Simulated scan of single mutants.
Amino acid sequence: MIIPQLARRFGVADVRNAVKDQPFMASLLYYFGILTQTGRTDFLETILNIPNLVARSLYVERLQERWPATYEDKTRVPELRKQVFRTGDLTPLVAFIEDRYFPILSNRDYRWTNELMVKLAFLTLLFDDRLYMLISETEMDHGYVDLSLIRRLDRRTLPALDLLLEFKYVGLQQITLTGEQVRAKTMDELASLSVVKRELQTAAEQARRYGRALSERYGLSDLRLYAVVGVGLERVVWQAL
């Protein structure tokens, strides 16, 4: 996660009145010890990451508890996860995010929504630290991988795929459509919109570049690559590369 700089004030009044944007919330997680500072970008922005597997597991598990609201949802998630791991098909997972995750979020979330919100949805659903090494915001070929799941060495004989996903986000104001209009369109119709198409292409280029570097680093022969674009908090458009 990259933010311009860490927030410095967290008194009661600050927490109550401050704008709850990504830098503020990331800074709060940093001072609580959930995130750690791992460096700076060329433009002196602060790079934050989850420091270790224990903190990462606690963080993601907490999100997993909050987001799937019903018992039925909680029992569906493991099967959705395994289907992606086995086949690489994101279709059922994306349908679950659109039907069950996005409706939880209120309209006021639109103001601060970006690709991080979409990434968190995939992260909480796909997280399995027993099977995978999770690579998130790791520097790779002069950039930062959004999300990769690389099978652990002692799990490489299992029928699971190595995955890399690059995320982008398009706000409703960028495509001048309402949420209802976006929900009414097919994924192909959304993918054909010029702004969405451009973001898909950018994500695809990054996924291919990072995928080559990641495959070389870990000796991977069949890393599956995906470009994923959130369209508002309504839909997810994706392409397997």
Rank of each mutant, 00 (worst) to 15 (best):
P92E: 12
I97L: 01
G88I: 01
T124M: 11
R76S: 05
M140A: 06
P68C: 04
F85D: 02
R108Q: 11
T138P: 09
S106L: 06
R62C: 03
F102A: 05
Q64F: 07
P78R: 02
E137H: 02
A69E: 15
F96W: 12
N52I: 02
P51I: 02
P78Q: 11
V77E: 01
P68Y: 13
M133W: 12
E137L: 03
D141C: 07
A121Q: 03
P51E: 00
K119Y: 08
I135R: 10
I97A: 11
L93I: 01
T70L: 00
R66N: 07
D141K: 08
D129R: 06
R56F: 15
T138G: 10
L126F: 07
I47K: 02
V54F: 08
F127Y: 06
K119F: 14
T138N: 06
M117N: 15
D109W: 11
F102L: 04
G88P: 00
D128Y: 08
K82P: 00
A69C: 02
T113M: 13
D128I: 03
P92A: 09
L125R: 07
Q64G: 10
T113F: 12
T75F: 08
T124P: 09
D109A: 15
W112A: 11
L58I: 07
V94T: 06
L48R: 05
N49I: 06
L93S: 06
A55W: 08
I97Q: 12
E61Q: 14
P78L: 10
Q83Y: 11
N107G: 13
Y71T: 04
I50W: 09
I50K: 03
L125Q: 09
K119G: 13
D128F: 03
L93T: 06
A69Q: 14
A95E: 13
E61F: 08
A69T: 13
V84D: 09
Y71W: 10
T91K: 07
Y101D: 04
R62I: 01
V60K: 13
P51M: 08
W112E: 14
L105G: 12
Y101Q: 14
E115D: 15
P51N: 00
M133V: 04
T87S: 05
T75D: 07
R81M: 07
Q64K: 13
N52E: 10
